[in-house]
Simulated assay, not measured.
Amino acid sequence: MHQVYGAGEGAVFALRGVDLAVGVGEYVAIMGPSGSGKSTLMNVLGCLDVPSAGRYLLDGTDVGTLGENELARVRNRALGFVFQSFNLVPRMTAQQNVELPLVYAGVSRRERRERALDALAGVGLADRADHRPQALSGGQQQRVAIARALVTSPTLILADEPTGNLDSVSTGEILDIFDSLAADGRTIVIITHEEHVAERSHRVLTIADGRIIHDRPLSDRRLAAGARS
């Protein structure tokens, strides 16, 4: 898989022949310096960008063949996103923030509420459902974001520097949640520049100059998502 921005002498080769497979239930960390291509790879995995060449298969579907509406549905239903900056809507309660993907999916109000409360309970925030983000700590806000990522039961959870804005205590709490999710068989890809965060994963990829230069794979898992050069 390749990703090129621009053309001619101004072309930027963000990904150069990446060949990657992530198996069901794998917990994978991607590391690399600034400009290495890890954010570009995350954007492709999250269906926010389409590779210039090669294919990206998500649960057996070639996302390059999908139109914009189909891609939007995939992002909403098959993918769960967790960001460094939480990306919560300030005027909404924790419950309402978690419900958002279900609103876009057309789920009924009653089912939205039940699923959102279950997701919040799963991250230890059942008693904070009615709180708005400003009334929550950074670690609690990130747990709300994780609940929102989980509420659609996605095929793949993508976390971009999820502990980057947290103190050491909150970081440990968030990593414990990811450990629990991985133990339950969730498929997780996390971008991080912190080695102690990457060490909690099952597999670490190091990327530099748009290429994967180190990969500690798990060979006994069947594929959930793949990218081919």
Rank of each mutant, 00 (worst) to 15 (best):
1 M>G: 10
3 Q>K: 15
4 V>C: 08
4 V>M: 12
5 Y>S: 10
5 Y>T: 10
9 E>Y: 06
12 V>L: 14
12 V>S: 13
15 L>V: 07
17 G>C: 11
17 G>A: 11
19 D>F: 05
19 D>E: 14
22 V>Q: 12
23 G>K: 08
24 V>S: 08
26 E>I: 05
29 A>H: 09
30 I>Q: 10
32 G>V: 09
33 P>Y: 12
33 P>D: 15
34 S>I: 08
35 G>R: 12
39 S>K: 13
40 T>G: 04
42 M>L: 15
49 D>N: 10
49 D>E: 15
56 Y>P: 03
60 G>I: 05
62 D>I: 04
68 E>H: 05
70 E>G: 06
70 E>T: 06
71 L>D: 02
76 N>T: 05
80 G>M: 09
82 V>I: 15
83 F>T: 11
84 Q>H: 14
85 S>N: 14
85 S>P: 00
86 F>W: 01
89 V>N: 02
89 V>D: 03
89 V>A: 09
90 P>H: 04
93 T>H: 02
96 Q>G: 00
98 V>I: 08
102 L>W: 09
102 L>D: 03
106 G>I: 11
110 R>L: 01
114 E>C: 00
115 R>T: 10
117 L>K: 11
124 G>T: 09
125 L>A: 02
127 D>A: 15
128 R>F: 12
128 R>T: 13
130 D>Y: 05
132 R>N: 00
133 P>E: 10
135 A>V: 02
135 A>E: 13
139 G>D: 06
140 Q>C: 02
145 A>M: 13
146 I>F: 03
146 I>P: 01
153 S>D: 15
156 L>V: 06
161 E>T: 14
163 T>Y: 07
166 L>I: 04
166 L>N: 00
167 D>F: 07
168 S>P: 00
168 S>E: 14
171 T>L: 04
172 G>M: 02
172 G>W: 03
174 I>K: 06
174 I>T: 07
176 D>N: 08
178 F>D: 01
178 F>N: 04
181 L>R: 03
181 L>C: 01
182 A>Y: 04
182 A>P: 01
187 T>N: 07
188 I>Q: 03
188 I>H: 06
190 I>F: 05
190 I>N: 05
193 H>D: 09
195 E>T: 10
197 V>R: 08
198 A>N: 13
203 R>Q: 08
203 R>T: 02
206 T>A: 07
207 I>W: 06
208 A>I: 02
211 R>E: 14
212 I>D: 12
212 I>N: 11
216 R>D: 11
223 L>Q: 15
225 A>P: 01
